[in-house]
Amino acid sequence: MSAELAGLGRFAGPATLILSSLAQGPQHGYGITKDVEEFAGVRLQPGTLYGALSRLEHDGLIEALAGDGRRRPYGITPHGARALAAQLTAQRRVTDVGLRRLSMGLMTS
């Protein structure tokens, strides 16, 4: 896990999903929940979403942008993009190893 996201503790999982959603462009809270539900099948609850958003903003991984009315969009910062890249690379490594070992195990059994 990347050091930046590991520092978020229990919000590390939701933070990865939020950063992945923001990687395609700025979005507000509701947009993030819909997008995450679509690409990951995870329903982020509002308390969890805003808990993670406040931590990500505090750590400089995302930034609040000027919005229309009470909806405030968030955008990923360069620091956040680097942290997400490191996190996803680490996850891919684990995924590759796990899948390779599984396939080898299936072939031998």
């Binding site: 507000h28 809270g29 509701y30 929940t33 329903r43 509002p46 805003y50 406040s54 009470r70």
Partner: peptide, 21 residues
Amino acid sequence: WLARYGDEMAVLLHDMIIEGR
């Protein structure tokens, strides 16, 4: 915390309740 995030979280809660969640 509400002074910073209260308004936007209220909008999200409204949206989710309207959606039946």
